[in-house]
């Protein structure tokens, strides 16, 4: 187990720096640091500015952020001035459930495609690779109609008429994020590199196929699971167009939607808006930083397809 993890870590981290060359080119180093600092400033200055606005008074502008003093209570006020607690709960439910489902389905299918030679494997693999490029926006409108006319759900009759189907339900919000071709593909790429011997040994010990999948190989796949989980989480948490068309009432809105409404309603204060922006970004940024070392190797693996 440790060997596999070590290998991934090695891949994910920068290769040992080319020290020799670096020493030879000493005069250029200072210039490199200046450029690097400029690049970082392009990112840090706007981010810190937003933090500044979120702590300032309602009339902050241009250079004068704290002319009305510092207001940490903005964060509490922002959270209360719209139904953010409710939106937070909605986003959390939709994101956690759909990510969990996506991870589980990706593991199962990825494992089978990598390690089991069943009939139709080539077809499934080809289909998945073709679907990797389908833009989610393309299928929004038809998927919306399919889900609202889904037979026998949400008051619909057997022909799919009469009710709202999955419109305005948690399940409806989750649907596009329940599975993804990319997730399956990434898991397959990972499982395929694991040694055959583990499975053979377990089989000799009398383990069934599902146990080999679940107890032998999947625990080794944690780095890939982390990548798929972060991608799924980000996709669902940050989604905007789908919740925009799939919700009908405020109590089903997600954070991204609630934030847009907060922005568009008359007379919102910029400081509260920026506080809200920071609050809703924290979970996904933290998750990103947490999963960064796996993630970077994951997206690179994805680029090899």
């Amino acid at each position: 187990m440790s060997t596999v993890l070590d290998r991934i870590d090695e891949k994910s981290q920068a290769r040992p720096p080319r020290m020799q060359k670096a020493r030879r080119r000493k005069p250029g180093r200072a210039r490199l640091y200046v450029i690097a600092l400029v690049v970082c400033a392009m990112y840090l200055v706007p981010m810190l500015y937003v933090v500044g606005v979120s702590l300032g008074g309602p009339t902050a502008s241009g250079g004068a952020l704290f002319s009305d003093g510092v207001h940490p209570e903005n964060f509490l006020n922002a959270f209360q001035s719209a139904d953010f607690a409710l939106y937070f709960a909605n986003s959390t439910i939709v994101t956690v459930v759909s990510s969990a489902c996506q991870v589980a389905l990706s593991c199962m299918a990825g494992y089978a495609l990598a390690r089991i030679n069943f009939r139709g494997r080539g077809l499934v693999m080809g289909g998945l690779i073709a679907l990797l490029v389908v833009p989610p926006e393309v299928i929004m409108v038809p998927l919306f109609i399919i889900l609202t006319k889904f037979p026998l759900l949400g008051g619909n009759d057997i022909l799919g008429a009469g009710g709202g189907g999955l419109l305005n339900t948690y399940f409806g919000l989750m649907v596009p994020h329940l599975a993804s071709a990319l997730g399956v593909f990434l898991m397959r790429q990972f499982y395929i590199d694991l040694p055959d011997e583990l499975g053979q040994a377990a089989r000799l010990d009398g383990a069934g196929e599902f146990r080999i999948f679940w107890q032998v190989y999947t625990p080794l796949a944690f780095p890939a699971v982390a990548v798929v989980a972060v991608l799924a989480f980000q996709g669902a948490w940050n989604d905007f167009l789908w919740p925009l068309i799939m919700t009908r009432s405020n109590d089903m809105q997600t954070l991204q939607l609630g934030l847009t409404v907060f922005f568009q309603q008359d007379s919102t204060q910029w400081n509260l808006l920026m506080a809200a922006v920071l609050i809703i970004s924290i979970p996904v940024v933290v998750l990103f930083l947490f999963g960064q070392r796996y993630f970077q190797s994951g997206i690179v693996a994805g680029s090899d397809k």
Partner: peptide, 15 residues
């Protein structure tokens, strides 16, 4: 969570 995902409620159409 699991219960919610199973039934997928929300406000639904309560008419």
């Amino acid at each position: 969570l699991s219960a919610l995902s199973a039934c997928g409620t929300g406000t639904g159409s309560a008419t």
